[in-house]
Structure formats: structure tokens, C-alpha cells
């Protein structure tokens, strides 16, 4: 198909998505002089950039993760605030993915391109909802870009977790969640469902939960697992990174029900591979219905698909008569390898 003309000022390069008239990268994969960062996940926010523009929260997250390596100078912006960089106007709007996550709205020469980063449309009490911005070209993720991925309501999934806790009070519930976004969302949903007990955390989750609380997200009573006797966790909910579910750390749990909260849990073989006795389909990425609704909502003539299973979404967009193409971005391409997919579920 014909190359879209808008690619003339925004293009994929080995270092990431590069904006020519502004001389900056969005979510660069190599150290860049000037970077706009959509959100704090490690495949988007990388250390070592010189000048970084992002939301407050995203910068706070990057600093928590990378310390002084997060960037040399920062421009902290609010959603909706317009900045000019070179000949380009730049505005960040909410993406609904994790706290501080943003879509990047770029305008140049009378054209508007939206780089959505990672996003979702379903409800999340820990971050601002996705905002629809109409545009000429829309760059969408496709992590769950197949029609088999239709996430059920996250509250209902948390309800299943609580039902299991009630049904097996002699066991402990060990929930594998990604440290940024998923952990806090699941905790917040548990609180909404009326679960007031202390929730116990693996050390790798503590820093970001504390940061969320400092940024005003109420997560209730949290405590570290470390130092507790085994029996103290009977009947409790414990959260840890997915990678800790199978390692020696998890052996200190009393007869745990292993739960994993991820969009991949929709596929039984994945759930079994992860050893999830209780798979919880909770995702911070848009499912098929959200992806296709967004493609319609933004009214863009061109759709660029990245970050996941592009084929089906490109096919769908073309069936609507839109120009659509897969955009390969280095560092975020998935080849179907399970482990990468699982790690990416947290991105």
C-alpha cells in the first residue's frame, strides 16, 4: 500500500519514533537528546535521556526507578498543557493505562498525529480515564489485538478473587501482579469491593505502591511480607511480581492459591504455563473491543499499529476503509515468545 504522506514528519528510526520538525523522540529505545515519555513502564521510559518531557507522575515513577539516571533535565507537564518544540505543538492527554500515562498529541503543518502509547478504555480507580482526541493519523498499540481478547470487568474478576479467599480460608492467596499499575489497580479494586484487611507485599512492589500513595491514590493498609512467620499469612492476600510466583520466595507461603492478574490469562494454555490456579483476567491494555472502538472514535484516516499482534487490527482498520499499516518499532516488537509477552503484559 501507499506510504502515508504524514510519515514525512514522524518516522520510525532505530532509536525510536522520531519527530523531524521537533527533533525529538517519543519513548526512545536509545539514549536521546530530547525525549517525550508516554508512561513509566520500562519498555517506554528508559534511563539515560538528556531532556525529558512527561507528566509529573511519569517523571516521579522514572526517578523512583532510575534515580539520577532518569534524565538530566525534566519538563513536567499537566494533561492538556500545550508546549512548542521547534515547529511542532505538543500536548499530553490521558491514556488511562497507569498513573500519569499519556497519549502524545503532535500538530505540525495543519496535521495532527496522536501517539497513544499504551492505553485502555475500561475503568481504573488509580488513574485518569482515556481521552479521545480526533486526529489525522492514530498510532495504536495492539498488545491484545485479536478478537479472542475481550476482557471481562476487572471488578468482577476481583470478585472471583474474593470468592476464592472466602472459600479457602485455610490457604493464602498469592497474586502475581506487575509492579507498576497492575498492583495498585488490583489493590484499589479490592478496597472498592470492601476488602479492608491488610494486604501483604513482596519487597519489589513496595516502592511504587508507596509512590502511588504519596501521589494521592488511596490503597489502604499495606505491609511487607518480609519477616512475617508463615502462619501469619494464612487466609491473607499477598501480592508479588509474576516472576516470584515460581521461585523459592513463594515457598514461604502457607499452601498458596496462585493467582495471576493479566490479560493473557484469557487463554487457558497461558494460564497453565504460568502455573495459575486462579487466573484473573485483568489488563491495563485495551482489549479488542476497546481497540476497535478507539479506531472508530478518533476518526483518523490513517492507523499505524505497533506493539503486539498487528495483523488482525490492520485487517480490521482496512475493512473500515482506512489506510492502515504495521509500524515496527525496535525494542517493542514481539515474536510470540511467551516470556516476552508475559513481561510485556506489565508494560
Amino acid at each position: 500500500m501507499a506510504e502515508g504522506k504524514r510519515l514525512s514528519w514522524l518516522e520510525p528510526r532505530p532509536g525510536g519514533l522520531y519527530c523531524i520538525p521537533g527533533d525529538f523522540y517519543v519513548d526512545p529505545v536509545r539514549k536521546a537528546e530530547r525525549a517525550i515519555i508516554t508512561h513509566g513502564h520500562a519498555d517506554h521510559a528508559r534511563p539515560g535521556n538528556n531532556h525529558v518531557l512527561a507528566t509529573h507522575e511519569t517523571i516521579a515513577i522514572a526517578e523512583a526507578r532510575y534515580g539520577s539516571n532518569a534524565g538530566r533535565s525534566f519538563q513536567r507537564v499537566r494533561y492538556g498543557e500545550v508546549t512548542r518544540i521547534g515547529d511542532v505543538s505538543v500536548r499530553l492527554v490521558s491514556a488511562g493505562h497507569v498513573l500519569g500515562s499519556a497519549q502524545v498529541v503532535l500538530e505540525h503543518g495543519g496535521e495532527r498525529i496522536v501517539v497513544s502509547g499504551d492505553y485502555k478504555r475500561s475503568r481504573d480507580p488509580t488513574c485518569a480515564p482515556f481521552e479521545v482526541v480526533t486526529c489525522d493519523a492514530f498510532i495504536t498499540e495492539a498488545t491484545f489485538g485479536l478478537p479472542v481478547f475481550r476482557h471481562p470487568s476487572a471488578s468482577a474478576e476481583v470478585g472471583r478473587l474474593l470468592a476464592s479467599v472466602a472459600a479457602a480460608p485455610e490457604r493464602c492467596h498469592l497474586v502475581g501482579v506487575y509492579a507498576l499499575g497492575k498492583a495498585q489497580r488490583v489493590i484499589a479494586l479490592l478496597r472498592e469491593a470492601g476488602y479492608d484487611d491488610t494486604i501483604y507485599l513482596h519487597g519489589a512492589l513496595q516502592k511504587l505502591c508507596a509512590l502511588y500513595q504519596r501521589l494521592g491514590v488511596d490503597l489502604g493498609d499495606l505491609a511487607p511480607v518480609a519477616g512475617l512467620p508463615k502462619q501469619a499469612l494464612t487466609g491473607r492476600i499477598v501480592m508479588c511480581p509474576p516472576s516470584s510466583l515460581a521461585d523459592r520466595w513463594s515457598q514461604q507461603m502457607p499452601d498458596p492459591v496462585t493467582a495471576v492478574a493479566s490479560g493473557w490469562m484469557r487463554i487457558r494454555a497461558r494460564a497453565r504455563q504460568r502455573g495459575a490456579e486462579l487466573p484473573l483476567i485483568i489488563s491495563d491494555h485495551a482489549d479488542w473491543d476497546e481497540l476497535t472502538a478507539t479506531i472508530r472514535d478518533v476518526e483518523a484516516g490513517e492507523i499505524w499499529v505497533t506493539h503486539g499482534r498487528e495483523d488482525a487490527l490492520v485487517h480490521y482498520a482496512r475493512s473500515l476503509g482506512l489506510e492502515a499499516r504495521a509500524l515496527s518499532l525496535v525494542g517493542r516488537e514481539e515474536d510470540g515468545d511467551t516470556e516476552t509477552e508475559m513481561e510485556e503484559a506489565g508494560s
Partner: peptide, 22 residues
């Protein structure tokens, strides 16, 4: 859509599961 079915079945690998989700 047959193309979406094909991509989905290829990914999921199990007919009952693919159809139940689609």
C-alpha cells in the same frame, strides 16, 4: 470474519476455546 477467525485460531490453537472467545 474468516481472516480474524484464522488469526485467532492460529494463536489460540484450540477450537473450542477459540470459538468460545470469538
Amino acid at each position: 470474519d474468516p481472516e480474524l477467525f484464522r488469526l485467532s485460531y492460529d494463536y489460540v490453537g484450540d477450537l473450542a476455546e477459540t470459538v468460545s472467545l470469538l
